[in-house]
């Protein structure tokens, strides 16, 4: 692609348009509230609590995705079976379903009118209006991002490496933990980042299942509905800033480790 060619300039222009499209509303929102407003907001216990709740439920969702999604990603990467395409489409379903529908669906299963809900009720597990419910919703919406990222990662590791390991006497489990997993850790980390990012920003599905306890997006919306933009923007500023920092740190950690290996 030569620098003076029109093809090059068209590409650059589109790139710039997209950058502006993303950054302009965000910068507007970040600079709209006054500094004093922003400082006041973080002193509000409700705000701190809801941002912390957002972070920690997203983290739990990423953890569950990691535990249950990794084996599934491995199977999808390594094997071919009848119905594999169907399974892959099912994994992608949460992305396609409208968010409130996700919340409604989860509530319907969790209520006493459903046999699973009855079991939950008897055992004392509460989904509606609870942290458990929020984590269930966030895991639901975050899983596809995790599974797809990690599946890609596993696909990029030659199965021959695993074959050699087994020929040297290692069982499948040992091979996975000594060879496959260490080689895939960057994709796993990326999967965790993508899953958490998706989870932290979820609103429509969570608000149906749990209004209280309030995650940050619900708090922002409640404040917007009740008192307007100026009251809700500072919370958004804090949430976006904290998330950006968290993800930047994670990305830097992976970059540095990547270079040294």
């Amino acid at each position: 692609m030569k620098v003076k060619e029109p093809f090059f300039w068209v590409n650059i222009s589109c790139g710039i348009i997209i950058m502006v499209f993303i950054l302009l509303p965000l910068l507007e929102m970040l600079t709209a509230p006054s500094l004093s407003m922003v400082k006041e907001t973080i002193k509000d216990k409700d705000v701190v609590r809801s941002i912390w709740l957002s972070i920690y439920t997203a983290g739990l969702a990423a953890l569950f995705s990691f535990i249950f999604g990794t084996p599934l990603a491995y199977i999808l990467a390594r094997t071919n079976f009848v119905g594999k395409r169907l399974v892959e489409s099912i994994v992608d379903l949460p992305i396609v379903i409208p968010h409130p529908v996700v919340g409604i669906a989860i509530l319907s299963v969790a209520g006493k009118n459903h046999w699973i809900g009855e079991i939950f009720s008897d055992v004392g597990i509460r989904i509606m209006g609870s942290v458990t419910g929020i984590v269930v919703v966030l895991t639901f919406v975050g899983l596809p991002f995790y599974v797809n990222a990690v599946k890609s990662g596993f696909e990029n590791i030659s199965p021959r490496l695993e074959n050699v390991s087994r020929s040297l006497g290692a069982s499948m489990t040992s091979t996975f933990f000594r060879i496959t997993f260490p080689l895939a850790w960057r994709s796993i980390l990326i999967g965790i980042i993508m899953c958490s990012a998706r989870a932290i920003s979820e609103f429509g599905a969570v608000v149906v299942v749990a209004y209280h306890p309030m995650i940050a997006p619900v708090l922002i919306y409640e404040r917007y509905e009740a008192y307007g933009l100026s009251y809700s923007q500072p919370v958004a500023v804090w949430l976006v800033s904290i998330c950006l920092i968290l993800f930047l740190v994670l990305r830097i950690l992976t970059l540095r480790k990547g270079k040294s290996s």
Partner: peptide, 20 residues
């Protein structure tokens, strides 16, 4: 028998050394 119990080693065309 699973591969790890056969006592059969394998050397591939593309060496397949563990990169890490």
């Amino acid at each position: 028998l699973p591969p790890e119990k056969r006592g059969v080693g394998i050397v591939y065309q593309d060496y397949c050394l563990f990169p890490h």
